[in-house]
Simulated assay, not measured.
Amino acid sequence: MDAHDVRQRQPTGMATWLVPVLFWLYYLTPLLRPGHENPIALWLLSVLPPAAALAILPLRRRFPTGVALTMGGLLFLSPGVIGAAFVTQASLARRTRSAAMVLLSGLWLIAAKLLELLVGPASGEWSGAHWVESTIAVTGLVIATLVGWLVRSRESESQSRVDADQARHDAELARIEQAKLAERERIAREMHDVLAHRLSLVSMHAGVLAFRDDLGPEETRETARLIQRNARQSLDELRMVLSSLRGADAPPEPPQPTVAELPVLIADLGSDQQIELSLGVEPDRVPARTSRTAYRIVQEALTNARKHAPGAPVVVSVTGAPGDTLKVQVSNPLADLALPDRTGSGFGLLGVTERAASVGGSASYGAIDGGFTVTASLPWEDEA
């Protein structure tokens, strides 16, 4: 169910009933004067058609054309139906896209009113009162049509704004999802390079083992051949599975940097920004996968600081212990010392959370105590 259907199912407002009821009461006032020739017939014509008009008025949403036709017939019988006719015309103009249908409905109701004044049950000699009633009917129906069109235009404009906001929201979600997929692809490529490098070493050492005669009996040599064959097959299968992620023409990349390369990274970036490194762990003891992830998180956080707070000092802290977690924290003041760089996609820090999650960790970032801090907690399995 869309917003338009919801609006159409809302309860009828007070004004919707107030207009037809007031007009009905107005046309009941002549009944209070005595001396009518046929008071019973006059009472029936003054009460039954307006009551029937009020009864079918809620159906105008589902059957706008049918209600308009019926309303014209009831208006021919009694002038007290004119208020309900106004509401019906306004509703038809609001909900019907065909302008011709709206105009035909208005003409039909005007014709019914004029026929009621000329040849209807309560018709009489044309007088000034007839001119007043016909003017009220024509003016009221024109106003009702214009009000219906105005309400429809405002609702259409409001719905357009809602649709535009939803489209922008969907586009933003698509950009976020695209950024996540791009980061996962980068992670997968790095995993491919690392595993390919390690499997190549396994294959090489197994090949050496297979051709050394001084290491033991024939069983050792056969086992080494199996290691060599299986390692090579594993490498070929891995390249085949992940070739779509990195592209067939992409050259092999060098082994990915780890926490041990953080001083080199900071030295390269330190010419543009003051960066302080606090390395509270032994890089060689950090598991390789966790170490690579920590390096990339620091790299992305430093890039973010350089873009959005150029010239501001940055503090990088890496702490932790085996069997616990490796905690990475990068913080910088919010005060800009130069014009920030706004050319990025805005999803760099999203890659930090993706990388942390890829190794079973977590990451967060935001403004804290006048500064911007990126924090990541990565699992550090005990070597024992």
Rank of each mutant, 00 (worst) to 15 (best):
D214P: 12
I110P: 00
P34L: 13
L242D: 10
W380H: 12
D324H: 14
A305L: 10
G323R: 08
I297K: 04
A171Q: 09
L245T: 08
D284P: 09
T29L: 08
E190D: 13
G128L: 13
S127P: 01
T319D: 02
P251F: 00
L107M: 15
L181E: 08
R97G: 15
D272M: 09
E172G: 05
R168F: 13
T16C: 14
S244V: 10
G366T: 12
I368R: 14
Q329G: 05
L18H: 06
D214G: 10
S362T: 03
D382A: 15
E261L: 11
R306S: 06
S291E: 06
P287F: 00
V138A: 06
A3M: 08
L54F: 13
T12R: 08
R168I: 14
H4R: 07
M204A: 13
T373M: 07
A210H: 12
I275L: 09
L201K: 10
P257V: 11
G360I: 05
S123V: 00
I227Q: 03
V264L: 11
D341S: 13
D369S: 09
E261T: 05
L69H: 05
D369W: 07
Q299C: 07
H197S: 14
I297E: 00
N38C: 15
Q178R: 15
V374C: 03
E282K: 12
G207I: 05
S105D: 09
D336T: 15
T96S: 09
V142C: 08
E190W: 06
G73N: 01
A384G: 04
A267Y: 06
A210W: 06
K327V: 00
G247H: 07
V87L: 06
